[in-house]
């Protein structure tokens, strides 16, 4: 398989005041295959936001390079805008970037910057909204009259409307209630299925990561400490807690039971698997 994104020896430090703790990154290398869902985990200040801003060319590497489909994105600095259409970045609390008078116009902002006009623009916005479940009756509403969860979805649709091959989301469900979380997760899933996009998600929520991500990038102090399948990363619980991260909560429960009963498996990371395993255990005794 061909890597869609490849990061080679990437380093970046912010200049200025030393007393402000900034999340610099040091010598990071990894590659992401087309169509994968990759999670980035790390505590605040570990370099997560610095890293993702390099992937769409908002920041220019101090050293090292970022390749998109095998080409250095900074080969032609004049075309960096095109990179941003190919690698869509949804920031934390994206609803704070809404500015247009109508939902339609706001979602159309990105495609318009790509040069789409008239029917082409209209079709683009409509097709994205159909994919992610934003109803036509919302089109003429002011984005500022929507509820928090709806605003978030409109803002995310605004990035998806550029049809990026790689979609990066920074804490996309932070601050939402269960309904809002469910809707945002569903829209990301639908987008990915329809366009075969690669998805990168930054999150603090290990439970979501366990059920969503194929692979995890673990950052600590600006360095890449692990890059592996979610299964392998969460199997190294001790290493995670050393850098201030944790395993999913169901794993913690199983580990605690395991302390008294060594037969209990501790390599289960999602709620669904845990329920299945414990039900089987209950039905078939400890040998299940």
């Amino acid at each position: 398989m061909a890597s869609i994104i490849e990061v080679k020896n990437l380093s970046y430090t912010y200049d200025g005041d030393a007393q402000i703790v900034k999340d610099a990154i040091h010598d990071i290398s990894f590659s992401i295959e087309k169509g994968e869902i990759v999670g980035i985990i790390g505590h605040t200040g570990s370099g997560k936001s610095t890293l993702i801003q390099h992937l769409n060319g908002l920041l220019k590497p101090a050293s090292g390079e970022v390749l998109l489909n095998g080409k250095n994105i900074w080969d032609d600095p004049k075309n960096i805008k095109d990179i941003r259409f190919k690698v869509g970045l949804v920031f934390q609390y994206p609803e704070y970037q809404l500015f247009e008078e109508t939902v339609f116009a706001d979602i159309a902002f990105g495609p318009k910057n790509m040069g789409l006009t008239g029917d082409e623009l209209k079709n683009r916005v409509e097709s994205i909204c159909d994919t992610v479940g934003i109803k036509r009756e919302y089109f003429d509403k002011s984005p500022f009259d929507l509820s928090g969860g709806e605003k978030r979805r409109v803002a995310i649709a605004g990035v998806m409307a550029m049809k990026p091959e790689v979609l990066i989301l920074d804490e996309p469900i932070a601050g939402l209630d269960p309904k809002g979380r469910h809707e945002v997760s569903a829209m990301v899933k639908n987008y990915r299925e329809k366009f075969g996009a690669t998805v990168i998600i930054v999150s603090h929520n290990m439970e979501d990561m366990a059920s969503l991500a194929d692979k995890l990038i673990v950052l600590s102090g600006g360095k890449l400490v692990m890059y592996d399948t979610a299964y392998n990363v969460f199997s190294k619980g001790d290493m995670l807690s050393e850098i201030g991260l944790s395993v999913p909560v169901v794993t913690k429960v199983l580990k605690l039971i395991n302390e008294k009963n060594n037969d209990i498996r501790t390599d289960i990371f999602t709620l669904k698997d845990a329920v299945e395993y414990l039900c089987a255990l209950s039905a078939g005794g400890k040998n299940a």
Binding site: D177, P178, E207, P248, V249, V253, L271, V275, C279
Partner: peptide, 20 residues
């Protein structure tokens, strides 16, 4: 009521639903 149920409680709830 649309509340966040933590995964611990959710786990117990699911087990109960499965007849445990």
């Amino acid at each position: 009521t649309g509340l966040d149920v933590p995964q611990t409680t959710e786990l117990l709830y699911q087990l109960k639903k499965n007849g445990i």
